[in-house]
Design a binder for these strands. Structure first.
Lengths: 245, 245
DNA sequence: CGGTAAATTGACTGCTCTCAATTTACGTGG
DNA sequence: CCACGTAAATTGAGAGCAGTCAATTTACCG
């Protein structure tokens, strides 16, 4: 493994340890909620706990694979790369979400690329393990279906709020999204890179920069620390829904 | 029931008869494919066969309901109505697709509105019937999950192709979509109303009209009969992917 | 302290929206 | 079968937002 630090702390995709689902502190959010402890006794293949630094690739679109990830911490971007190399972010998924669920329908090829936007902790679950457990606990199939329904709901909201309208409103919705799903205890959020924000709302990088600069000038977005911003949720919400100032 | 004809033939939402899943000629596409004949012996509630004229409402967003529809013929638009009355079409679903699947996750409120874009034939399946069958045939849960995955895949494609870029390219993708899913044996398609096309690609009605008029002038789109159009798939495909004339 | 990549800003062009007028289509009633 | 009325579609003119290209500044890592 090479060590090319993207941040001062770590580093590379790392194997952190064997997952202990029985004592998972967020099991209620995870794919395996509802399964009895004994279900984890005799797994066909182990579940590993992985740490991905920002920018690390969980998997790439079109590649063969046999594992699903459930996110314990951080934000994962699902993206599509066009023929010309342009990127479009289709979803941002946080703690409790599962990625790679398309493999459960028999295929073995990922439909999108999954890239860590943050420092991400995720459990790597082999598809064979899920299929074995599904056979024994039919409830798991319903769980997976609920996860898909969540993805669908979130994507629909994505399309409605960030898919059309003036760039300023779309970015306002993105900020609200980040506040809702990634804010720390102080309500502060870590902004995406300009390129990523552009890939979410479907505009050019320059437009993103201009709009964000304008929000800062008007005091709707305030820098509280390196990479940490606080936004005036009230005003941004008004901006997102109305079409004024 | 009032009778306000939208076309010369019928008319109103009609009960056509009891569905006979055992002899369904497109059962392989439907939700119940894979179920043995005997599964239909003792349903808790009957499955009805419904005919919806263009514009008929299958259900409206936010309303209570307890049935899922599977489409046998025609095109159904799933749409969201904004606070200002503006409509945005999130998906167009054709034969073999199921709508209202969100009810299977325990809720009883539809998340979108479903409206017939065409003359639509659909089977009305009570949720209790599906749940009872799921208990007996776990395979059905997987079927429903696959349907959701299909919706998700289609929505992703929708976002990528019709969610950004110049209006001309987005409309080109819409024409290709209609050709793929609704063309008759001659390859001809029935265009949506200008308002509906605008609600799909997220532009104004005027822009749609201008682009369509331009395509007609250039011979890429030809009227072969009332409401029936034939398009030069080759040229439209080039237009959809490249950015030139 | 230096180098590379990202972000910012400006000027200009072009596309799309809005508003408005006109034409066409279509169902209704004579 | 034809005349009429409403709604949809079409077309035009003008303004504004966003994209592109290019130059500059800033940030970040070694």
């Amino acid at each position: 493994m090479t060590r090319e630090a993207q941040h001062s702390y770590c580093t590379d995709t790392q194997w952190v340890g064997r997952s202990e689902c029985r004592v998972c502190n967020i099991r209620s959010m995870m794919l395996f909620s509802g399964l009895p402890d004994e279900a984890f006794e005799r797994l066909l293949r182990p579940i590993d706990n992985m740490a991905f630094p920002p920018g690390a690739i969980l998997y790439e679109a079109g590649t063969h694979g046999d594992v699903v990830y459930t996110i314990r911490r951080g934000l994962v971007k699902m993206l599509h790369v066009g023929a010309d190399g342009s990127q479009r972010i289709l979803r941002l998924l946080g703690a409790g979400s599962a990625v790679g669920l398309e493999l459960l329908d028999g295929g073995d090829v990922y439909r999108h690329s999954a890239v860590a936007a943050n420092q991400v902790d995720a459990c790597r679950i082999p598809v064979v393990t899920i299929e074995a457990l599904e056979h024994e606990f039919p409830e798991l199939t319903r769980q997976a279906r609920q996860r898909l329904q969540q993805h669908l709901d979130r994507t629909d909201e994505w399309v409605l709020t960030m898919g059309s309208g003036p760039a300023r409103q779309r970015l306002a919705h993105l900020l609200l999204f980040l506040t809702r799903y990634t804010a720390d205890r102080n309500g502060d959020i870590e902004l995406l890179s300009g390129e990523d924000m552009a890939a979410v709302v479907g505009t050019s990088v320059e437009t993103v920069s201009r709009v964000v600069a304008d929000l800062k000038r008007r005091g709707l977005l305030e820098r509280v620390a390196a990479h940490l911003y606080r936004c005036d949720t009230q005003a941004i919400e008004a901006l997102a829904n109305d079409a004024d100032a």
